[in-house]
Amino acid sequence: MGSMASAKVVILPMIDKQTDREPAAVKPSATQGVAAVPSANTPAPAAAEIPMPEPEQIPTVSLTKLLRRLLAQITRERIITAGLACVSLGALFLFWYLGTKYRLEFYIRFKNVPTPYEVFQQLTQVGLSNKYLVNIAISVRRILTGFFIAIAIGVPLGLAIGKYQRVRDLFMPVVEVLRPIPAIAWVPMSIMLWPNNEASIVFITFIGAFFPILLNTIHGVHSLDGVLIRAARCLGASEFRLFLNVILPGSLPHIFTGLAVGMGVAWVSLIAAEMISGQFGVGYFTWEAYSLVDYPAIVLGMITIGFLGLACSGIIRMVGNLLMPWLAFAPGGKR
């Protein structure tokens, strides 16, 4: 992906990157897909869609040019990649389909596993119901709250720990003691600590996201080339400016690694917390389905969780690419 991206970027950085990322991000692809169609005739709204200002946007894009560019992207290499992706997903689906069709029993038991059709039916029945959507909305809210608190604390603390030996000496012992405790192990304590259920679940999500973000931020500061800090000092950067203009952007690639890992752990923690102590949420939805012997709903819950996780990591990757355009040229490619 790196080589293709860099080749195209030379001509039209922002637009190409957007189209390139569409399949990765599930949620935004819907809005972008819609925006891409009118962009053939009127490029202005497409440009407005892009958050980062791009003064050198070419003013007009003819339809043929756009088509040719899109066609140029359909290379042999990409067709193979897409084909193998279909094989990989198809095989999983086929395994599920055949397993449930013939009710396979070979140590693992497909006896109670719902068929794909039953799950699809469940989706059409439940999928648009208020209950299901509210559960999703609540889970997303919990994730976002916990995740952003983790960023707000983890990144500045990580920068400070990475930069100052004394801050490191003060905080690292606590971090090292608390870090090995999995977020799920915090569930009982969290219920005791926090006044309500909602706060305790957000706290567990926060714990899950916090440590990966913190540790990767520290690592980002440490891996920053010292000559850049010296150069900035020579150019008159004050301590605050040094943080803002050198240490933060220099650590950003590692911070985003931390965000991606943190988001994954946050989902794991959230689902577990919802299953154990929850009211509402996708984890609760899934566990409740099991308790009510509503097997298709279990699978629907699992697939929903999968999609939500995929969407979240896709968004993080997209934001990362937008914030760090220089990485497209970095030697060795940090992506």
């Binding site: 000559v227 010296r230 150069a231 020579c234 952007p249």
Partner: peptide, 20 residues
Amino acid sequence: TRPGSDRGVVFQQYSLFPWL
């Protein structure tokens, strides 16, 4: 006593900020 912009420094290693 300390680094300052009255002395420009050019380093042996490339010291450009890669993100700028």
